[in-house]
Design a protein around this nucleic acid. Sequence first.
DNA 1: AAATTTACCGAACGATGTTAGATTATCTAA
DNA 2: TTAGATAATCTAACATCGTTCGGTAAATTT
Lengths: 202, 202
Amino acid sequence: MGIGGRRDREKQELKQAILAAAQMLAAKTGWAKVTMRKVAEQIEYSPPTIYEHFQNKEAIITELARRGFRQLLMALQTVDELTISPEEKFLRMSKAYWDFAWQSPELYQIMYGLTNTHPSDNSWPEAKETFRVLHLTVQAVMRVEYDAPELHDALLITWSLTHGMLSLALESQLDCGPERAAALLQQALRDLMTVWRSRKVS
Amino acid sequence: MGIGGRRDREKQELKQAILAAAQMLAAKTGWAKVTMRKVAEQIEYSPPTIYEHFQNKEAIITELARRGFRQLLMALQTVDELTISPEEKFLRMSKAYWDFAWQSPELYQIMYGLTNTHPSDNSWPEAKETFRVLHLTVQAVMRVEYDAPELHDALLITWSLTHGMLSLALESQLDCGPERAAALLQQALRDLMTVWRSRKVS
DNA sequence: AAATTTACCGAACGATGTTAGATTATCTAA
DNA sequence: TTAGATAATCTAACATCGTTCGGTAAATTT
């Protein structure tokens, strides 16, 4: 079949261009205004061409969301490999989580349901792996003489707190700046860990 | 002008019917599938008739969101008037907040940005008043020898935790049931208050 | 060079929010 | 009671959306 390797490469490049265009438009104007025709115009192709590379609009968003989880996972793993104390690791992971969402809000929005362009099927392995890393970290913090259910609860609570503060901050519903919100979050997480540690002793 | 009072009453009733139809459809099928034509069909009028009562689709959603805040506010005030101890009041308000969101998720979704049918201008007095009530309650808990900034922080943190857990639970991103999530939330809030109280002493 | 496959596009379909203009019902005034 | 005015409502249409169909032009293979 000859040297059709270039065709494949060009095809891949166009696919990347579509994803990049969609994300760029979302970052600039919000997901509600991202339209197939605008994406097509951005990459200088006609709208039907997009459908040669993606089944539909949701497939583009799904792919971006999964990439978002991969990015987030990498950021968390980078922190993980620094191998500092469990508490430090936990707090830095929370910070990395925050930084990712704040740096790419358009991705965080589609990873969770902060917009209704949110994909319906969101049971991706990338998401599962992300939570597994978080779970392991919390486990390390809580490792000594802590039974499983309470460990899982701790993950749920810290995750909820982080996500909640992020959601509100991303929507500017918080009357303080993001740096202050991030600092508050860190302190609250420290406080929660303090309580949980003291409970372990008793 | 005679007895045109009936016309006004009928007009109001139709307006209520439009709001009720929109909310009902949202509760049954989700906001993404709520359409002006479906609302019109539900109330047995043609689509343009809706525009005699609302400027556009967003105006309907805005009105429902504001009513949502009024409902929530009433629930909080009911708890407030029971005049129990500050801590009890705080926890029960959090519970009332949770119950409202869980009972009318379609309202909670548009009150915060959990869907992109979210109104752009969301600076309503009802929302401000709701937070004022919450603020006063937190203030009562933290009243003795607590300086203002930390008080406000406490509100932000508890609100974020509640909202975060709600968002995740409403989207079934939590692997536990709502009752369990609610119980976890209550415990976490108690824990946070414990830390804050102990810090006050030192 | 002919045949075949591939990439791409113009035009269109159905559904959406929304508006204009006509039609019908209702009320006021003689 | 009836003529004219006012209000309520509808039919038809527009622009835009996601998406598909069918064809054209280009690239590749034979």
